[in-house]
Structures are given as structure tokens and as C-alpha cells.
């Protein structure tokens, strides 16, 4: 005995697609700028045929069953690609909700018995709802991936290591220093020390909003790692209020070379490398 609704849906595949397309095109939020109607149509057709051909009595109430693997795959790739293309949740949601409308419309036309129509509509409704939830979840995951990638990019670009002199590197840190960031800072700095054979690194923290004990610990770790490599590390850009909090929090920075400005750190570095900066002797005006 085959379910009435399933038979109807499989038979009326074409009508459903037309009605679904109609619903989608009616929607004001349709993003023709992001996707052409032809693409939308072939995408919809693929999904619909995967759905109706795999639909049977056993799985109609279970969206997670093996039979719907193909449907779930298509939905996942649709919502992930939409998330990356910049579709809004409403636009993505409408895609699957309008399918529900189309399916219910066909059932309404075909099933005359109100009791039966009600039963079948509930079943189909539940099934599609369950697909919609998955769609939203994958959509969000797609967005999260975008955010994660951007975070990585920000961490990467916000820690430039600059060679300021032969043997002297500077690394201005801007923003909060958490443990993930510290790891990137350390890796970049140490790698550059090896590449350039520099023996002094200046870590400028003028752009770090606050130094608490955790941030201080990260700074100390960076200095220790630099020293293990055989280079010296100077921390510069320490504002008066940072000096205050550091002491109030009881953080011991006495083993670390600290300077208030990058300029004075550079001067210290010159002294350590036994370099001297002198004004070029134009004719002595005095």
C-alpha cells in the first residue's frame, strides 16, 4: 500500500516545480544579483527530484533517514554556498519554505477528503520543517566558517614583524593579546629572528588597551622564548597607566627590559649592538 500523498507528489513533480518557482520568484527578497533564475531553477529541480524520488512510506516521518542522504547533501551545499555568497537567513529560509507551500498546494488540489488532506499535510509539513532546521544549522555553520576565516586573517595581518635595523626587529602589537594571538606573535617573531639573524626584538605594546596578569604572562612567555633562541627582547610603549596596573596587580616584570617609547627601545638596542647614530658632519655652524 503506497501512501496517497507520496504517489501524488511523485506524479506531479513538474507541477510542484512550477509552483515552487512561482513562489520563489514572487518573493521580493529574491536575489537576482547573487544568483540567476536559471541557476535557481536547476538547483530547485535537483533538490525536488531528490526529494520525491527518495520519498517512501518508511521515511516520510524521518528526515534523518538514509533515504534522504542525497536531499540533505544538496540542502547542505545550497545553504553553505548561500551563506558564503552573502544571502540573508530570510532569503535562504524562503527557499525551503516556499517548497513547503508548493507541496501543500498540490496536495490540496489532489486530495479531496479533508481528513486525509489534513493528515498528509501535517506529515509533509513536519518533514519539510525538519529539513528547514537543518538548512538553518548549515547556513549558520557556513557563516561561522566565514567569521573564523576572517578572524584568522585579522590575527595574521595584525602582527607584522618589521626589520628596523640590521639585527633589530620591531613588532607593534595592536589590540588585545590573548593566548591564540600570543602564539601567532611568538611564531612570527621567532621565525623572523631566524630568517634575519637578528639578535634584538622590540615588542611595542602602545596599541594594547590594557595589561592584566594574563596579558603580562603572555608577554613574559614571548620574552622567554626569544631569549631561549639567543636573542634579547625589549618591551616598549608602556604607558604610565599600564605601569600602574602592572605594579598594583603584583606582576613581576623586573626580568624584562622595558622602555616607555619605541624610540628609547631602539636607542637601547643600538647601545647593545655597540652602534652609534651621529649627525652627518655638514659644515659645523657653531
Amino acid at each position: 500500500m503506497k501512501n496517497e500523498a507520496i504517489r501524488i507528489l511523485q506524479k506531479k513533480n513538474k507541477a510542484i516545480l512550477e509552483s515552487w518557482m512561482k513562489f520563489q520568484l514572487l518573493d521580493e527578497g529574491l536575489r537576482e544579483d547573487l544568483m540567476s533564475n536559471d541557476d535557481l531553477r536547476s538547483q530547485s529541480e535537483e533538490l525536488l527530484s531528490a526529494l520525491t524520488s527518495n520519498l517512501n512510506d518508511n521515511n516520510i516521518e524521518d528526515a534523518k533517514s538514509m533515504g534522504f542522504e542525497q536531499v540533505n547533501d544538496i540542502l547542505a551545499s545550497v545553504s553553505i554556498s548561500r551563506a558564503k555568497q552573502g544571502f540573508s537567513p530570510r532569503e535562504t529560509g524562503n527557499y525551503i519554505f516556499s517548497l513547503k507551500n508548493a507541496l501543500l498546494e498540490i496536495l490540496q488540489q489532489e486530495i479531496k477528503d479533508p481528513q486525509e488532506l489534513y493528515m498528509q499535510s501535517i506529515k509533509i509539513g513536519k518533514l519539510i520543517d525538519s529539513f528547514s532546521i537543518d538548512t538553518f544549522e548549515t547556513f549558520l555553520r557556513g557563516r561561522e566558517d566565514v567569521i573564523l576565516r576572517q578572524t584568522d586573517e585579522i590575527t595574521e595581518i595584525s602582527t607584522p614583524v618589521i626589520q628596523v635595523w640590521d639585527g633589530i626587529l620591531a613588532l607593534p602589537i595592536i589590540g588585545t593579546l590573548d593566548s591564540a594571538r600570543t602564539q601567532v606573535v611568538m611564531e612570527n617573531l621567532l621565525q623572523k629572528i631566524v630568517e634575519t639573524g637578528s639578535s634584538i626584538a622590540i615588542l611595542d605594546i602602545s596599541g594594547v588597551p590594557a595589561v592584566d596578569s594574563l596579558v603580562a604572562q603572555h608577554l613574559i612567555k614571548t620574552v622567554s622564548a626569544t631569549r631561549l633562541m639567543g636573542a634579547e627582547c625589549i618591551i616598549s610603549g608602556i604607558r604610565p597607566e599600564i605601569a600602574q596596573t602592572v605594579v598594583h596587580l603584583g606582576i613581576d616584570l623586573s626580568n624584562i627590559l622595558t622602555k616607555s617609547t619605541l624610540a628609547s627601545a631602539l636607542k637601547t638596542a643600538f647601545t647593545m649592538l655597540q652602534l652609534q647614530v651621529t649627525r652627518k658632519n655638514v659644515t659645523n655652524l657653531n
Partner: peptide
């Protein structure tokens, strides 16, 4: 010392005190 080794030693809490280091 390799950078990755230095980072790991610091994380491990092993400062190798009393030992001097140089780049090469």
C-alpha cells in the same frame, strides 16, 4: 634552537636557566 622548540619549552615551563643561548 628551533622556534617551535623554544615556544614549546616556554609552554612546558622549562626556562633552561643557567644556560646561555645564541642564534647560530
Amino acid at each position: 634552537m628551533q622556534p617551535a622548540v623554544a615556544i614549546t619549552l616556554v609552554e612546558l615551563g622549562l626556562p633552561l636557566s643557567g644556560v646561555f643561548s645564541a642564534l647560530n
